[in-house]
Nucleic acid binder design. Structure first.
Length: 561
DNA sequence: TCTCAAGGCCAC
DNA sequence: GTGGCCTTGAGA
């Protein structure tokens, strides 16, 4: 392949983003694009046949540089005065790991956040047109301690994660800015936004947790977890990935059937995509080949039309895509470059993330959002585990969430254990519960109403605004009753039977909580997480109401056992 | 003027 | 060759 052919391929595959002319724009001859044609390192990337495109990164396009709904709209993620927490500094956000080697990130370099070392390596390689070869299988593991061993695989990984050849300057001019500036700014703003949301969730929950009980100096457990760099993940298609190239993360993921999302939510007719939800395009769900179990359990479209506006509004507060994206995103980020991870620890992190989502959801819901923080705290402390179990039932029944998934490193992750809060022996009870719900044709409106009933529990002691909570509870109760009578007239006393399921959910959740607490006390669970704060909150000496509730759980547990 | 992502330098 | 630190300079 000649240089001109290479250049042609480069141009054809360059993203619209890359093609945007600038001071160093494409086609200038002396600009980086023209330069990149001559700077493409030979050897490593050139070991391809003529019909193979050597540039795994070359199919970058704006759709995933800025996935729909995550900042593609001008300014949508740009922080404005007052909407970014003052304490949140950009540097805090950038405290993440280099996607190439896992070392500490020093800033944006050649298109994404990397460490100083990989920045220098990438620069030297491109500037000096280095030719590397791999003495192994072109799939060497690259981490901080081994990054020097195989420059071939290191450079390949640089390209795989999205470092941009065209950001290395042809004329070696120093200083100044390049065309990636706005991209960096958006990415940074997006990370700030994520941090802000987490902080709000934490602040909501900190309130009474700090007093008397656990004082952790809590910070978001994911402050140090790599926040996925949306701008950095190139999707290596079969057209662009050469068998001669070292495999990129995307390719590896495909090969190992790494965390696969479940089929799309089966309840689209309920219009569950909230204004905050990720765009349907943000995650490439595969079209399910078969219908999910719930598809036959839902009312017909005619009946759907008779659903009250309130229930429709409830349903819209559900964001299953976001739930799934978060779940599989976390599994991906936590196993990135990891040979083996502690699966229990990983489960705790997922549960923790789910808790954050739950708080976010609750904070934006009717009834709950009008309560004072103290009341919100108490309600959440009482219902979080029940809601986690219920959420998992919902994900299984309505979105086809599988019981297991394969992580990027090949380990199997037990998704069902999330619903069991880590107690495998509860699987049978969980399945029985699910079957019972399936018999009742438990659908999405049922789910969201039951979730509200769990959250808005007027029996929780210490609530100041009991009236508001009770009103909310009774309103939801009435709506659910009406819904079940209207849409499921053939199921006798569906409402009553649904209400009877709630104690069973309590029982499962209580067992899970106890298990988690014991593992935590044994030093096996991650500390300083929201999950652990919640567990401790229930065990505060002054939590008399917790004792009462535990007694309820125990009695139900006896039945389960 | 300040910021920060480029390139450069040099001890290792 | 590597990687930490320094210098540079366009853009905010």
């Amino acid at each position: 392949m000649t240089m001109d052919q290479q250049a042609g391929l480069m141009s054809l595959n360059m993203s619209p983003f890359d093609l945007s002319p600038g001071p160093e724009g494409s086609g200038s001859g002396s600009g980086p694009s023209g330069a990149s044609q001559q700077y493409v390192p030979q050897g490593a990337a050139y070991q391809c046949t003529s019909d193979q495109q050597p540039f795994g990164y070359a199919n970058l396009d704006a759709s995933y540089l800025f996935p729909t709904g995550t900042g593609s709209e001008p300014g949508s993620y740009l922080p404005t005065a007052g909407n970014v927490c003052d304490q949140t500094d950009t540097k805090d956000v950038i405290e993440e790991l280099c996607p190439v080697c896992g070392d500490k990130v020093s800033g944006y370099h050649y298109g994404l956040l990397t460490c100083e070392s990989c920045k220098g390596f990438f620069k030297r390689t491109v500037q000096n047109k280095k030719v590397y070869t791999c003495v192994a299988e072109r799939a060497c593991h690259i981490d901080k301690t081994q990054r020097k061993r195989c420059p071939f695989c290191r450079f390949q990984k640089c390209l795989d994660v999205g470092m941009k050849l065209e950001a290395v300057r042809a004329d070696r001019m120093r200083g100044g800015r390049n065309k990636f500036g706005p991209m960096y700014k958006r990415d940074r703003a997006r990370k700030l936004q994520m941090m802000r949301q987490r902080q709000i969730a934490v602040q909501t929950l900190r309130g009474s947790l700090g007093e008397g009980g656990l004082v952790l100096g809590f910070s978001s457990p994911y402050a140090t977890v790599p926040v996925k760099q949306e701008i950095q993940i190139p999707q290596v298609s079969s057209l662009t990935s050469s068998p001669e190239s070292s495999p990129g993360p995307a390719l590896l993921a495909a090969q190992t059937q790494a965390p696969q999302p479940p089929p799309p939510p089966a309840h689209d007719k309920w219009e569950t995509h909230s204004p905050h939800s990720a765009s349907p395009d943000a995650f490439a769900f595969e079209t399910p080949a078969t219908t999910t179990p719930s598809s036959t359990a839902e009312p017909t479209s005619t009946e759907t039309l008779r659903v009250s506006p309130m229930i429709r509004e409830f349903v819209q507060t559900i964001d299953d895509r976001e739930w799934q994206n978060s779940l599989f995103g976390l599994l991906q980020s936590q196993t990135y470059n990891q040979c083996e991870v502690d699966l229990f620890e990983l489960m705790c992190k997922v549960l923790d993330q789910n808790l954050f989502s739950q708080v976010d959801w609750a904070r934006n819901t009717v009834f709950f959002k009008y309560l004072k923080v103290d009341d919100q705290m108490k309600l959440l402390q009482h219902s979080w585990s029940d809601m986690l179990v219920l959420d998992h039932l919902h994900q299984r029944m309505h979105n086809g969430l599988p019981d297991e998934t394969t992580l990027h490193n090949g380990q199997k992750f037990d998704l069902l254990c999330l619903g069991l809060l880590g107690v495998p022996s509860l699987a049978e009870h969980f399945n029985e519960l699910q079957n019972k719900l399936a018999e009742l044709k438990f659908d999405v409106p049922d789910y969201i109403c039951v979730k509200f009933l769990l959250l808005l529990n007027p029996e929780v002691r210490g609530i100041v605004n009991v009236k508001c909570v009770r009103d909310g509870y009774q309103t939801v109760q009435a709506a659910l009753l009406d819904y079940t009578l209207t849409c499921y007239p053939t199921i006798q006393d569906k409402f009553g039977k649904l209400v009877m399921v709630v104690p069973e959910i309590h029982a499962l959740a209580a067992r899970g909580e106890e298990h988690l607490y014991q593992r935590h006390c044994a030093g096996q669970a991650p500390t300083q997480t929201l999950l652990m704060e919640m567990l401790h909150a229930k065990r505060k000496p002054n939590g008399a109401e917790m004792v009462n509730r535990s007694a309820d759980h125990t009695s139900t547990l006896d039945r389960l056992s």
